[in-house]
């Protein structure tokens, strides 16, 4: 359904990881580039510590149905998130999981998704940037590395709009880290 310019992203994880903010930042970057977006999230007490979901649709054209129905990219930052919101993927869906907190599920293979990218996101963030904050921005870097959905500089601008000055440097490094992780996979010849 829809058209080729429509990009659908679903991010799921634990409330507090900043996935909703991440989707808003990417949405704003897309708007800066003249695209149209719809951003939504699961709403309720779950979003504060429980399992959460953020969705973003980006298109060059008017977006009629605003929710994700056939994701191009599903990013699961917790096992529970993947369980609860991992349905509805197809062979067009790239799946990214954080292998430092969950193992790759057997259910995902070439038959039912476009590819599974298991990256140790949280552990790499902690070891490289000595931070537990910024997971959402590392993930944005990974999404950017995989899709180049917006210009990196636009993404930096959008991040700066939402981040306090003293954390700006950390967040820019987090973005770079995410993109690096994708590049490293590509260099290793892993099909992504």
């Amino acid at each position: 359904m829809g058209n080729d310019s429509r990009f659908e992203l679903r991010m799921t994880g634990s409330g507090g990881q900043g996935l909703i903010l991440g989707s808003i930042i990417l949405a704003e970057a897309a708007i800066m580039e003249g695209k149209t977006v719809t951003q939504s999230q699961v709403y309720g007490a779950e979003a504060r510590g429980g399992t959460t979901k953020a969705e973003l649709v980006i298109s060059d054209k008017h977006i009629a149905y605003p929710k994700v129905t056939d994701p191009d990219l599903l990013a699961a930052m917790t096992n529970e998130g993947l369980k609860q919101y991992g349905g509805g993927i197809s062979r067009k869906t790239r799946v990214v999981i954080d292998s430092s907190v969950m193992s790759a599920p057997d259910s995902l293979d070439e038959e039912n998704c476009r590819g599974l990218l298991a990256l140790p996101i949280r552990s790499t963030l902690i070891s490289r940037l000595e931070s537990e904050l910024g997971l959402n921005i590392v993930l944005l870097g990974i999404i950017e590395g995989l899709t180049a959905i917006v210009d990196v500089e636009t993404l930096r601008k959008a991040i700066a709009m939402h981040v306090k000055k003293q954390f700006l440097d950390l967040n820019m490094k987090a973005l770079d880290l995410g993109m690096e992780m994708v590049e490293a996979q590509a260099r290793a010849g892993i099909r992504i």
Partner: peptide, 10 residues
């Protein structure tokens, strides 16, 4: 409704 209330669009 709940969806439009919480939807973000430009």
């Amino acid at each position: 409704d709940e969806t439009i209330s919480h939807l973000r669009e430009p």
